[in-house]
């Protein structure tokens, strides 16, 4: 059986369903983790030392625990802590998907906030000093001078996080979310033949990552080409599993 024959049949359909769930989960968590990352970064800019330290420790703690532990906690642990009404509401819905999305969003959000923070920190002090001395207020300086530059620097690491996040959604299979790898395993259980389903799933991930890698390269070439002094992108921290 060739790969084409395999994919055009019933199993292709299952894998396609899995791909759709993977893309949904990636999309939802990418948006949510970006919001979480920005929020954490903004809170960390607080002038209060204790707030900075507390959020910093929280981010480090989230990053120190494997994603699988986060996922298991949000799926098996957290619902127990909810009031009955909310729990019923949750279980009436796609609880696996929701819990996986929450866990991955928080985990990736912590990594994104680190990337954004090192983006912010890589802006030379002279920028804000010059802007303040030109009469911009503190907020205006941040909004018009610092943020645009920091964001531009953060785009390549953020695309890297998008790639890692997409790969990390595969961990949701451990709590039964029917994403791509889950479907591949299911087909293996039906046919007792691992090669075709795993090869197909692998191919899909390679294509997704190739697209994101090309996007990242294109961005670095065009957007950063004329900004030599800022071209050094900050150290990215992979989320990994």
């Amino acid at each position: 059986m060739t790969l084409i024959e395999f994919l055009s049949g019933r199993y292709g359909e299952l894998l396609l369903k899995g791909l759709i769930v993977t893309l949904q989960l990636s999309g939802v968590t990418l948006a949510a983790s970006f919001v979480i990352g920005v929020a954490l970064t903004l809170i960390r800019l607080s002038p209060l030392w204790i707030v900075q330290q507390a959020v910093g420790l929280l981010v480090d703690a989230i990053r120190s625990v494997p994603l699988l532990v986060h996922v298991i906690f949000w799926y098996f642990g957290a619902p127990e802590l909810l009031p009955d009404g909310l729990r019923m509401w949750l279980y009436a819905r796609d609880v696996n998907f929701i819990c996986a999305a929450i866990a991955i969003s928080i985990y990736a959000g912590a990594f994104i906030s680190e990337d954004l923070r090192s983006g912010l920190r890589s802006i030379p002090r002279g920028q804000s000093e010059a802007s303040l001395s030109l009469g911009f207020s503190g907020f205006e300086t941040f909004r018009y001078i610092i943020l645009p530059q920091a964001f531009r620097i953060s785009v390549p690491p953020l695309l890297g996080q998008a790639m890692t996040l997409t790969k990390n959604t595969s961990i949701a299979l451990m709590i039964g979310v029917p994403e791509l790898v889950y479907q591949a395993r299911r087909i293996q259980d039906i046919t007792y033949e691992p090669l075709m389903p795993y090869a197909s799933a692998t191919l899909v991930y390679v294509v997704i990552c190739a697209i994101l890698t090309l996007a990242s390269r294109a961005y670095s070439r065009t957007a950063l080409a004329h900004r030599t002094e800022l071209e050094r992108t900050p150290n990215t921290r992979e989320q990994s599993a």
Binding site: S170, Q188, P194
Partner: peptide
């Protein structure tokens, strides 16, 4: 680098 570690694990384990 572009394939999830979980999938690598399954490859090595089953294939």
């Amino acid at each position: 680098r572009s394939v999830p570690l979980l999938l690598h694990v399954l490859w090595v384990y089953f294939l």
